[in-house]
Design a protein around this nucleic acid. Structure first.
Lengths: 219, 219
DNA sequence: CAATCTGTATCAAACGATTGTTACATTCCG
DNA sequence: CGGAATGTAACAATCGTTTGATACAGATTG
């Protein structure tokens, strides 16, 4: 079969980078068409889920026939995995860069949350709503996704470990709850009312518990 | 050839109620076969999602051919809606009964959370993981689900309004975050480690903020 | 008691549509 | 010309659903 990594095609080398987050997402890709396919597929997967998105749907979005996509992709499954892993990698990089600028553990956590929400809730972003779409993909695809996801979550393992949490709070559960929120806010968020920063702030305000807990607690 | 379960159709009036939560779920249904179909479909929808579950899959689970299901159901879409609405109704009833026994606002919230998690995390329960499967179903089905869901969430509107929350916390966001958690814990929960009660307790411990917030807050 | 009817439950098979994918032909462009 | 990009057309599978036949239980009838 034709080698797909062969570069030096149509466009000039400094022509790329049209959009914001999404443009960044697949920045390393050679062909603009290929990047358009990745973005269209990502957005459709996020909108309707993996199983409910057909290859022809993706093709229509970029002005190609379904079968023509196979000049760029190997299979629908691998396309999904590629999008998923890329989104996760970009998110990880951005979050790491954001928390690096902060010293205080709570400030670091908030920076991570706000950054992740900024990605999740950006309509251009297209990133990670797919992460809650495990169900529909075949088992062996799931395994690939989970591996990548575990690596990503290591960021939050460290972040949560550094928090001066009140005792009685299970840090493992705490981390999972926080990630559950960050991953799913996109399900109900509608732009206009609150900004991603405000929601991130609310989350941290709720999850922020200083060392001394309830002064006159019941139990 | 034909299986052996052909006989034994009609049942006595006091013979029903085999399982726990799931048995309760579709208790009012007349035929045992019909109830088996509802339960099998509910569990499959919860496992793989709506789009990735075929009518033939459901049939196989109950020992029928795919087409034979249409003696009991009108369509796959209506089957999904019925399961969804029933699960929501059962959950609502159980939560209302649970919070009725408590007076303190925080105790009422915890009762609601623990009850809902008990339903969500019960492997027999089968109830509501479907609620996060909006994406795959057609638009007009979504509208039906959303209507039911809004009614359900009214419970939590009242519960959260009664909380003596620290100022600076948006009660609308607070409620949505809480519901997001309750709806999605099932994605990572594995029985054995922690009980639903313990997780519910952790959630409330995190979401519990007395009126006087951080004594020397940063912002 | 046997024969017949009736209605429910199920199977077997097919329907048209859609799925992911491929093979081949064509167009485009340097 | 030559290779990359796209269209055309089909493939086998699977999808939700329908149709018609069949098995069977119970009531009705002789």
């Amino acid at each position: 079969m034709s080698d797909t990594t062969r570069a030096g095609k149509r466009e000039g080398p400094s022509d790329a980078a049209p959009a914001g987050v999404a443009g960044d997402l697949f920045a390393g890709e050679i062909s603009e068409r290929y990047r358009a396919i990745l973005e269209a597929a990502a957005s459709l997967f996020a909108e309707r889920g993996y199983a409910a998105t057909s290859v022809r749907d993706i093709g229509e979005r970029v002005g190609l026939l379904g079968g023509s996509l196979y000049h760029y992709i190997k299979s629908k499954e691998l396309l999904f995995i590629k999008i998923h892993d890329t989104a996760l990698q970009v998110s990880e990089d951005r979050i790491r860069a954001a928390i690096e600028r902060e010293r205080d553990p709570w400030a670091r956590l908030e920076a991570a949350c706000v950054t992740m929400l900024g990605i999740q809730l950006d309509p251009r972003s297209i990133t990670m709503p797919l992460m809650n779409d495990f169900l529909a993909v075949p088992r062996h695809v799931q395994e690939s996704l989970i591996a990548k996801r575990d690596a990503f979550e290591q960021i939050f393992v460290v972040l949560v470990d550094d928090l001066p949490l009140a005792e009685g709070i299970d840090r493992g559960v705490y981390r999972l709850l926080l990630l559950t929120l960050l991953n799913n806010v996109g399900l109900w968020y509608r732009p206009g009312r609150l900004s991603p920063e405000e929601i991130g702030g609310q989350i941290v305000r709720i999850f922020r518990h200083e060392v001394q807990a309830a002064p006159s607690g019941g139990d």
